[in-house]
Simulated assay, not measured.
Amino acid sequence: MWELFTHPSNLLFSVSLCLMFLLGILEGLLLIIGLSSQGFLDQFIPDQLLDVNHPNTHHADVDLDSSNIFIQFLDWLYLGRVPVLVWLIIFLTVYALFGLITQNIYHYYTNSYFPLWIIAPASFILCMPLVRTSAAIIAKILPKDETTAIHSDELIGRTAQIILGNAKLNYPAQAKVSDQFGQMHYILVEPETDVVFLQGQEVVLTQKTKVGFQAVYISI
């Protein structure tokens, strides 16, 4: 059994399984100290997947234009309808177990393993329906307040506090901001002009950027 995990052809699956455990431990430690990675991860999800006006079904109103095929695919995988960290743990678990089980069965009959360059992409594609099914089950189990999401645009105008590093123009720092539901979001913030936001300062979010938000300093 140990050979199954350590064989070079299965290394990617073993790493995925270890990463899944590390993410769970990290989130547990963050919760102990009163933080969470969830708000930070949510900012990387397209707004179409976080539409609070369609919480119950399959986002049927998502534009079916071919330019949105990628968005449709993510929606099909339930990404955005369960917390991002939970979805990532589901994916890593299903991908790792699917690959290892497939390799184990193949080894049982042939006494060899599929090459990594074949089994890794094949497992990635074939495990997606299982990822979707697992995420759908988890989405029904999780309490609704665990999956409440808002458009990132709704954070504009709210006050954020720089919590990690100093923010400069084109060099954002991590900040935290509370939404209208009292949920805390961890975002990247940079100033609109050539000033510096120091750690601990409070700023007002003014507009979105590709990686986070721009803000202005609250003058006293």
Rank of each mutant, 00 (worst) to 15 (best):
M1R: 06
L4V: 09
L11M: 12
F13I: 02
C18N: 08
G24R: 02
L26T: 08
G34C: 12
L35R: 10
Q38F: 01
D42C: 14
F44E: 04
F44Q: 06
I45D: 07
P46Q: 15
L49A: 14
L49Y: 05
L50F: 01
V52P: 01
H54K: 15
H54T: 05
P55C: 15
T57P: 02
T57G: 13
H58M: 12
H59N: 13
D61G: 12
V62A: 05
S66H: 04
S67V: 05
F70A: 13
F70M: 11
Q72T: 08
Q72V: 08
L74W: 04
Y78E: 06
V82E: 03
P83D: 07
P83Q: 03
L85K: 01
V86A: 08
I90V: 10
I90S: 02
F91Y: 03
F91Q: 00
T93H: 02
T93K: 02
V94N: 00
Y95F: 10
A96W: 01
L97N: 05
G99K: 02
I101A: 11
Q103S: 08
Q103E: 06
I105F: 04
Y106F: 09
T110M: 05
F114A: 00
F114T: 00
W117A: 14
I118R: 08
I119T: 01
P121W: 07
A122L: 12
S123H: 00
S123T: 07
C127L: 04
M128C: 06
P129M: 15
P129V: 15
V131K: 05
S134F: 04
A135E: 03
A139K: 09
K144C: 10
D145R: 12
T147Q: 12
T148S: 13
A149Q: 07
I156G: 08
R158P: 00
Q161D: 06
L164A: 13
N166V: 05
A167M: 13
N170C: 15
Y171K: 14
A173Q: 04
Q174H: 11
V177E: 10
S178C: 12
D179I: 00
H185I: 02
E192H: 10
D194K: 11
V196Y: 03
F197V: 11
G200I: 06
G200C: 11
E202T: 06
E202F: 12
E202V: 10
V203A: 11
K210S: 10
V211A: 13
A215V: 13
V216S: 14
I218N: 14
